[in-house]
Design a protein around this nucleic acid. Structure first.
Lengths: 231, 231, 231, 231
DNA sequence: AGTTAATCGAGACGGTACGTCTAGTCTTATT
DNA sequence: AATAAGACTAGACGTACCGTCTCGATTAACT
């Protein structure tokens, strides 16, 4: 039943090449329409009908290729979203992780964050969605982070748990908590405070990223701590 | 417009005693029916109609007193849910926090966890819900935890961040991450590994809770001298 | 059960004078509000709620005194409607009847006609309403017309049916038909044509009313015959 | 907007053959269900929901094809009602008209009369309904009657008005008046009295229909050589 | 070139729930 | 007792989507 056709190849491994092949154009239109709708609506309020209408496509065509609205959204989001949270390879591990965390927080503070949060939300009522999200968004990143952490352990004298994942969660969980619970803003100030605290607990120097230009952007970081709320 | 009437008193809301007063019985029936439905359905799949049907109540009565399904659920959940995550007051702060964390994790690993997760999910598309959730579930607990952390700082030599909340997030965020992302189980093993790692980073001994019987399962509530915490 | 309180006397013949007497002011407000609403809505689209709201009165008060919306309307219409279709007594019977018919047609061509038509419409689903309508609107008029017809028969040589009512129907039915079916307009042209034809069949001269100033009003009577439709 | 699809052909309405064609079965079920309900309820008390339920059909399907409940009823009534008021063609005009009037009165004295009256009632608040009624029920009949009257004028020495419609109204209006106002029964006695009076006014002999067996009750259709008239 | 088989758009269809509205009834305090 | 205010159950309103189902028209690959 699971047929989340994310592959860019039009008609991938259909039983045989019999019959009219799947239309790549149609697939693209659907995903593009979805992304367009995501800019003005929540996933919850988007409907398959609306996507079909916006894409100029029959409803059945969507139902044929995706099991649920959320899975369409995942595909659409992945396809049209250039990943802006790379893990730099030319930096020492401690620096690289800090850079990644910073960019992730910046990413999640905007539109992408809202989408990710809503995908996770949809996942609470549909295990398939949550699984898909983990496989497409999370596990790759997690594996890379794990690698970096291992490298860090080897290169530096840091206090590491028996299961290195535990440290990974310590670094990333607060970000997801703010993303989903809205307890506090996902801003630069949070990023610096969080990262520098964990690094100091680990007994290492604060990474360079935290030292560069203290960007005040549009906010006075001193008083801005508890804006959380509204969203 | 926000009129999530959770008050135990029947009807003080009305300006004066004009007109027929709100029926307390009806309110109770609605919340009870909601809890009943929550045992077999997700919040998303529950409908206002179903609640009204189950409660033997007119739909309009629900719409009159609550702004959304999720707010009914919050009320219902709070009312019919004996809080099982107390923060013990007769223990040293470090121990008390660990006990609380353990019981929270155990709590969230079951039915209550599913409900909380779904409430947060509903909140992703409705700021009012998320706000209500924070105010009713979270802030009380957070304040208590903050107090305990302050007490801990005073009594023990631990490495504490400038903003003590940062430490709070470090302790609690991984729990919410597993609750919502499903990256790993919310079990005893996780609880021990997470807590003992953070405590070791802080430079304090592992708390006693982690040392007791490795397989309590049914959990003997050994530390009973507590006060109802949250809410 | 029938308690269509149309009497102008405040507290009519209540069993005894026990308790608070019926409020005449309230009764008046209700009827006034109803008439006001009748100017912008059909009876069907008016609701008891709307009347209560408009009158600043409790719904129950209306239900206490009237059995149905239509009966309120009948009361309201009778009360606020000065009858403009008198049967002149100083004319010979043939003239008097013609005058009455003319004024009735003119009356029914406007707002009053719409109300009467709608009351009859309500009566199709509620015999009580139709009965009330006949008793309050119709029978009085019919009796008078009968008298006039009898007088006419005595004074003039006209061909009269065994049951004089049969002639009455012949004179009045086409008016009600146009009122209710909308087959043709209820205008002066119709009035003249209809009356003069029946009078000629009866073998009497056309009445004087038909001879006075041929008022063209705003219409060319020659081509206007079949405008009926729209309403 | 007017799309009272009464056509026996399933779906010519659609611009072209795009999309799934309209289901004739569904249309039939809806009309049949409506007729069934009409036997136990007034049009006013019937709801679209009830029709949908009775027909085993989605509400939207009804809304898609009809603009109002009354229009469904008109379609249903026309479709399931074999017209029993033919205008015989093998009789002299005066006789034919009398026969038609008699059968119309008999028809209107029962169930069909109640339905027609209620349709007209619905029409008082909705011009579209009244228009539809006239077009589907009335105009066809009226045209035939007009023809008969013209034929009558040519063949016999009767006193006819300048506009022959005026005579038509004289003959038919009393029937509709009794149907709608309930001033007197719609029975054989009325029929005879009314018709014979008008005929005598016209200076012609009473038609044969009035002379036959005074108590037929079940009515032997002696004059069968007819053609389906109305509609 | 014709056949075959799946895809596509359009949109009808039976359902279900939405959030609103009104019907009548009832409860309270006030007159 | 009658009133206004307004809560209450019940259920219809007309709309929107759901997911499924015909249709006729495409579109390749396989005869």
């Amino acid at each position: 039943m699971n047929r989340t056709a994310q592959l860019p190849v039009p008609a991938p491994a259909g039983e045989r090449g019999v019959g009219r092949p799947r239309s790549e154009a149609t697939r693209t239109q659907i995903l593009a329409a979805t992304v367009r709708l995501l800019h003005t609506s929540t996933i919850q309020s988007i409907t398959i009908e609306a996507i079909a209408r916006e894409a100029g496509v029959g409803k059945a065509t969507i139902y044929r290729w995706w099991d649920s609205k959320a899975l369409v959204v995942i595909d659409a989001f992945m396809e049209h979203h250039i990943v802006k949270t790379p893990i730099p390879h030319n930096l020492p591990p401690g620096e690289a992780i800090a850079v990644h965390l910073m960019s992730l927080i910046r990413e999640y503070s905007g539109w992408s964050g809202r989408i990710v949060a809503q995908i996770i939300a949809e996942g609470q009522a549909d295990p398939a969605v949550l699984r898909e999200f983990r496989e497409r968004f999370h596990y790759g990143r997690r594996a890379l982070v794990r690698e970096m952490l291992e490298a860090w352990r080897s290169s530096t004298r840091i206090h590491v748990p028996p299961n290195i994942e535990t440290l990974g969660e310590l670094l990333y969980a607060p970000v997801y908590m703010r993303l989903l619970l809205g307890n506090g803003p996902l801003d630069d100030h949070f990023a610096r405070e969080h990262i520098s605290y964990v690094y100091s607990l680990l007994g290492v120097e604060a990474p360079d990223v935290l030292k560069v230009s203290e960007r005040p952007k549009k906010q006075k970081p001193a008083t801005r701590k508890t804006t959380a709320a509204a969203r």
